[in-house]
Design a protein around this nucleic acid. Structure first.
Lengths: 167, 167
DNA sequence: TATTGTTATACTCTATAACTATA
DNA sequence: TATAGTTATAGAGTATAACAATA
């Protein structure tokens, strides 16, 4: 368990972090902004999936996912096939053009990082990546309605699969 | 110098990071969103300063800063005094009410982190904070037009600097 | 003429709610 | 009735450009 002051400092870094993300956004292709990039990245990494699964991995609402998916589908980067097992669902998968676009994104972002983090050691980059992954994991599925806090139910934190029993 | 694959993985973590920030945003007071919180935090940490300096520390455009500052000023959390040395400038400083608000923000965010990172060691929190600070530092002042990318520069991907060449 | 701020406008991302189709 | 997905609407953050006041 860390101390108060440490949390404060971490929060400060988290806030200031938007700048780095915006810098990333600036090098994106004109019609492939961060929302589209996120869709392509997740599909490239995890393979075909349904909308709801994608929304979960992106940690955004299904409605948001729907918009981003529509955007990339319009450009031919993904295809939405009907799910034979559930006619309400659609299976998303990357097209060759989508893979090319994804490659381009990787090219640009790695180029930017190589430029900026040229003096970082292999170990440092790895450690940061690892800690960020863990942070994200510690926050779990943090999409909206994490605290419905209804008067009747015990406000504990039942959805937090996060070892809350630290008391 | 790290490897390609590592950069890709880091990018992935950076993208997925929005979720954590949104979770933070959800616990903010209704009239003190992330923009306001950032203003208060920076003023609390660095003391009185001018708009331009604040914009620099926030890594956002001056126009954005102006809006956020107006918001917090309307609520009495900061005061804008004229700068005797330069009548164009305004010196910003936290009011007691602003300090209280800031304390409240710290209370909420540290509480959230304590809940989520309860099983993190002191060392891990410190290391993550340190690495994030360094990352931010490596990106420098990454506000718009950080790469004026004059013609002589590497033609790689100057991200289509708005094609200003249309004099 | 250059700089400090402010304001108007536009764009992206996200969430909530209403709605359709299917389970 | 509940779930998967779409669409409309609204709110927040940011950038660009035009403008005012001062250096």
């Amino acid at each position: 368990m860390a101390e108060r002051a440490q949390y404060e400092e971490l929060v400060r870094q988290l806030s200031a972090f938007g700048a780095v993300k915006r810098e990333m956004a600036r090098i994106m292709p004109a019609d492939c902004h961060s929302g589209s990039a996120a869709v392509l990245t997740v599909l490239g990494r995890h393979g075909d999936m349904r909308m709801s699964r994608l929304a979960e991995l992106l940690s955004v609402d299904l409605s948001v996912t729907s918009r981003h998916v529509a955007h990339v589908a319009e450009r031919g980067w993904i295809e939405r096939s009907p799910d034979p097992a559930d006619k309400r669902s659609r299976i998303l998968h990357l097209t060759p053009a989508g893979q090319e676009q994804l490659d381009e994104l990787v090219r640009r972002t790695t180029h930017l990082l190589a430029d900026r983090l040229g003096d970082w050691s292999d170990e440092e980059v790895g450690r940061l990546t690892q800690l960020m992954a863990r942070l994200r994991d510690s926050f779990g599925d943090c999409r909206a309605a994490p605290r419905p806090a209804p008067p009747p139910a015990p406000p504990a934190l039942e959805r937090t699969t996060r070892t809350p029993a630290s008391t």
